[in-house]
């Protein structure tokens, strides 16, 4: 228990709490349950993408293509709905998951089979996926009136006081907790990032594990693509532009080590919530949204400084009598 209180998750949770107290002192309505639920719902896309990004970063990779993947999948879903309004939402969900997964697999295959550095691969696919949206749509928007009510209504369906979008984020977070703690693949993510050479000699296929991480990340980006377009009832070339950096920021603030192999799902969840609260609170307390960028940036640097401080080596135990004390 004491070790948990000293963990970075606890510190981040305390920071979020302090932030809420501070905001409520100026604007008490912000912390009312109804508003907190709204903030959570608004943060759900970030949580979904950050969870996918977490497994990618754990394996010493990075996925910069998530926002472009989201936008492309969202556009395809919206155009499908506009052309064939009768296609049920279940089919659209499967399409979104599948399309996202395929785009993730493309990233993963290039990292696995061609050994191209992940940052290069995903920088390339980010541009390609974004460009494909323009090719498909011709630069045109798909607007609310072209979408069916079922299509735009799904993420907003209310279940026990929370919209489906929030429930999906909760469900996926739960699956990640389980998957990371209780499946061989979850363990492999940490082993591959923590010591790739040892992982190879342990019989873990490093490339395949990274491929799986990209596939998961892509699948979640695709799913979020549909949810995003439906929620905002609009699809255009630039949706979620630059969102990939916010996603990486959520992971880093949550304590996922960019060097791979370290971090927790709880950390990512808290990191995303922290950014979500900052983003939603600033307009409320009448601070320019541009401050949000400065605050996010500061949070990233503080988080990384914290990481490198805790990771600093304590020196080697050389003297016999020092053994056991360290």
């Amino acid at each position: 228990m004491t070790s948990f209180l000293r963990s970075r998750e606890a510190i981040l949770a305390a920071a979020i709490l302090a932030l809420l107290v501070l905001i409520s002192s100026r604007f008490p309505a912000f912390v009312e349950p109804g508003n907190l639920a709204r903030v959570f719902t608004d943060t759900s896309p970030l949580i979904l993408l950050a969870l996918g990004q977490t497994v990618v970063i754990l394996t010493r990779c990075i996925d910069l293509s998530v926002a472009a993947n989201l936008a492309l999948t969202g556009m395809v879903c919206a155009m499908l709905n506009a052309a064939y309004p009768g296609v049920p939402v279940a089919v659209i969900l499967i399409l979104a998951l599948g399309m996202g997964a395929v785009m993730g697999m493309i990233n993963g295959l290039m990292v696995w089979k061609l050994k191209i550095p992940p940052i290069v691969v995903t920088l390339g696919t980010m541009t390609i996926y974004r460009g494909l949206i323009f090719v498909l749509s011709g630069g045109a928007w798909v607007n609310a009136h072209e979408m069916s009510a079922a299509f735009t209504g799904f993420p907003r369906v209310d279940i026990l006081g929370l919209p489906v979008l929030a429930w999906i984020a909760i469900l996926v977070t739960g699956l990640f907790f389980l998957g990371i703690a209780r499946t061989p693949l979850g363990r492999a993510f940490y082993a591959v990032g923590g010591n790739p050479h040892a992982a190879v000699y342990t019989g873990i296929d490093v490339g395949r594990t990274q491929f799986m991480a990209f596939t998961i990340s892509g699948m979640l980006a695709g799913l979020t693509g549909y949810l995003w377009v439906a929620r905002y009832s609009v699809a255009y070339v630039d949706i979620a532009g630059g969102f990939e950096l916010e996603v990486v920021a959520a992971c880093v603030i949550g304590g996922i080590s960019i060097a791979g192999g370290a971090g927790t799902i709880l950390g990512t969840l808290l990191g995303a919530l922290f950014l979500g609260i900052v983003k939603n609170a600033l307009p409320v307390v009448d601070i320019s949204p541009f401050w949000q960028l400065a605050i996010s940036g500061t949070a990233i640097i503080v988080a990384v400084a914290f990481n490198s401080r805790s990771g600093r080596s304590k020196g080697r135990i050389i003297l016999k009598r020092a053994e056991g004390h360290a």
């Binding site: 363990r187 082993a191 010591n195 050479h197 040892a198 992982a199 873990i204 192999g261």
Partner: peptide
């Protein structure tokens, strides 16, 4: 068990029991 001791090393960050059960 390879020659390079850095490579054959444990996966730092994982607890002891998870290192043992990895393969």
């Amino acid at each position: 068990v390879p020659e390079d001791r850095g490579r054959q090393g444990a996966v730092i960050g994982l607890p002891i029991f998870q290192n043992v059960t990895l393969p």
